[in-house]
Simulated scan of single mutants.
Amino acid sequence: MGHGGNVIDELMTDHREVEDLFARIEALPSGDRNQRKMYADQVTMELVRHSVAEEAYLYPAVREHIAGGDAMADRELEDHAKAERIMKDLEGCEADDPEFDRLMGDLMTEIRAHVADEEQNLFPMLRAACSPETLDDLGDKVRTAKKTAPTRPHPSAPDKPPANKLLAPGMGLVDRMRDALTGRGKPED
């Protein structure tokens, strides 16, 4: 969740962690209800924190530093909105529900396409447009944002500054309290 380095390194490490969780889910049989749900919850928690941090700091930087950045950032926000709706639906599904596999497949497809687009297009453009100091500063801001970000999907929450930066920490606190009370994302004893 906080890896160090510039914003691109930080976010690419997040991408690898989410892909690892996807691989763990894919390796489990459909009937493995507990572990599949635990990993799905962990994926959701990581993706929501990651998305909130990107929306607060990465996409404003894309708008500021990259020619055509507004359209690029808007497209990325649309991807986030799709993924968040899928995660919201997934949140209400048990792993033995037939919808679980469909929704997880949809989420994996959406996230993998989003990651490929960011890593092949957006990140190289950002690296070329920003100084190493700017990228390091953005990395620090993203790490800080992930610490207080929500862990559950909130599809109707604002996704652009300043409203998202003001509301995310409060929603994050409530989400983390709920997670702690329910044991969400942790192995069952």
Rank of each mutant, 00 (worst) to 15 (best):
Y57N: 10
E188D: 15
L47D: 05
L103M: 12
R33S: 13
L47M: 15
I66Y: 03
I8Q: 08
A129F: 09
A95G: 00
K147Y: 04
L107N: 05
G5N: 04
R112W: 00
G139E: 07
E19I: 14
D79N: 15
R184A: 13
L135D: 01
A163K: 14
T151A: 09
M38N: 11
A163V: 02
H65V: 10
N164L: 06
H50T: 05
G170Q: 06
V52I: 07
E26D: 10
D96M: 10
V142A: 08
T148R: 14
V174I: 12
H65A: 12
L173E: 02
I25T: 02
D179F: 00
V52K: 11
H15S: 09
E26Y: 06
K165T: 04
D137K: 09
M108W: 06
T44C: 07
K37M: 11
D140G: 08
D179G: 03
D70T: 13
E10N: 12
H114S: 11
F100Q: 15
T182R: 12
R143K: 11
M125W: 07
G4K: 11
L135N: 00
R102L: 14
H15W: 00
Q120I: 09
P98E: 10
M108P: 02
D79F: 00
M104R: 13
T151N: 05
S156F: 10
L135C: 06
D117S: 14
P153M: 11
P150N: 06
A73Y: 00
D159F: 06
Y57S: 11
P98V: 02
F22P: 04
D32Q: 15
E110I: 05
M12I: 14
K88P: 06
A145L: 03
V18H: 07
L173T: 02
R75D: 11
G105L: 10
S156Y: 10
C130T: 04
D74W: 01
E26G: 10
S131M: 10
G5R: 12
M104E: 02
M108Q: 04
E55Q: 14
L167I: 14
L58G: 08
D101H: 15
H15P: 01
N164F: 05
A180Y: 02
A145G: 04
G172E: 03
R49W: 03
D97L: 05
P169T: 00
I111V: 15
F123D: 03
A83V: 07
D32F: 08
M108N: 02
A83L: 13
L90P: 01
E84D: 04
G185L: 04
A180F: 05
K82T: 12
I86V: 15
V7E: 04
M72D: 01
D189M: 09
R143F: 01
D175F: 03
E54L: 06
H50D: 09
E78K: 14
A128N: 03
F22A: 15
M87F: 12
L122H: 03
V142I: 07
A53I: 03
H3R: 13
V48A: 01
L28E: 13
M45Q: 12
S30I: 13
I8A: 11
L181V: 07
L103P: 01
A116M: 10
A27E: 08
R127N: 03
R176T: 02
Q42L: 03
H114D: 04
E46H: 12
R143C: 07
L173M: 13
V18D: 07
A95V: 01
A113R: 04
